[in-house]
């Protein structure tokens, strides 16, 4: 009485914000596609193409409008800069200046910040799960810390940690509370369902943690990491605004102070690029982990 395995190949969900891939279902090769299905596929492909083209066109249009507006003096290019200028100063800054060095500085700060706040956040969430007392005692503090605008702590970090390490202080301050709360709520959800079995076998807390809580939290870790990347970057830039001698945040503030809009714009573009890359990397790592732990159908 062995039933055939249910193998529902789920459609890959469009998590990445990328346009939906034309549904390339693993249609077995022997089944011929009906004309209606073929028309459907064609329509889908055309739709995707249209969306992607429109996106490019929108970007190009905006850049062109910006350039024209600056050239025809509809706007003051001292205030707005213009794409061609941004591009040439990007070249200058990378070749002669040290834009890449500054980008690297900020990137490294972001990586270290993410690693630290994920690790510390996870440890604290584990502590809260382990000890109901600890979580009850610390709960109001977490609530207050969460509501407190972390930027207000800037001067304190600067005095305590110096101009370099205060950036990490700010990055972690901004991202850790949300990290703790997300991971903890994931743990609570798991504790309600998956732990009953472990209890019935008489498992210790450490066994529950290793065998259930951590592996079962993988999807939640990835979601938390995605949020964490954005928040940490905010923290890093904020930290650099307040006190630093290098980094994209430093360049932006500096450019603003000496009224060099080109420098500001180039730095902002680099920052945008960096967050896209970071998001892509996290997505990729996430997909790898999801596959490793069989979270896909």
């Amino acid at each position: 009485m062995s039933l055939p395995p249910v193998d529902e190949t789920k459609e890959p969900a469009a998590i990445s914000g990328l346009p939906e891939a034309p549904s390339a279902r693993p249609q077995s090769n022997e089944a011929p596609k009906s004309p209606a299905y073929r028309r459907y596929l064609k329509r889908q492909r055309r739709r995707t193409l249209f969306i992607q083209l429109s996106r490019l066109l929108l970007l190009a249009g905006l850049l062109a409008l910006w350039e024209i507006a600056a050239r025809l003096r509809w706007v003051d290019s001292m205030l707005t800069s213009k794409p061609s200028q941004i591009f040439s100063s990007f070249r200058e800054l990378t070749v002669e200046g040290d834009l890449l060095k500054h980008t690297w500085t900020t990137g490294l700060e972001m990586l270290v910040g993410i690693a630290l706040s994920m690790a510390a956040g996870t440890l604290i969430a584990i502590l809260f799960w382990w000890s109901t007392y600890a979580s009850k005692i610390l709960e109001p503090y977490i609530v207050v810390l969460n509501a407190l605008p972390k930027v207000a702590l800037g001067p304190i970090f600067y005095i305590w940690l110096g101009d370099r390490y205060s950036i990490y202080g700010m990055a972690i301050a901004i991202s850790i509370i949300v990290t703790i709360m997300m991971i903890e709520s994931g743990f609570k959800e798991l504790a309600k369902t998956k732990l009953k079995l472990m209890e019935s076998f008489g498992a210790t807390r450490l066994q529950m943690l290793k065998m259930v809580m951590l592996p079962a939290s993988v999807p939640n870790f990835i979601a938390t990491l995605k949020v964490n990347v954005g928040l940490t970057l905010v923290g890093v830039i904020m930290g650099e605004f307040l006190s630093s001698k290098a980094g994209l945040g430093y360049l932006i503030i500096y450019g603003g102070q000496v009224f060099q809009m080109n420098l500001v714009m180039v730095s902002v573009c680099m920052l945008a690029l960096m967050s896209v890359v970071a998001y892509g990397v996290v997505n990729w790592i996430g997909n790898l982990l999801m596959k490793k732990y069989h979270y896909e159908g």
């Binding site: 019935s200 076998f201 732990y293 069989h294």
Partner: peptide
């Protein structure tokens, strides 16, 4: 004692 629960609680990562 062995316990068989209403839900199978099979772990999808194993």
């Amino acid at each position: 004692v062995g316990y068989m629960l209403q839900h199978d609680h099979l772990f999808e990562w194993r």
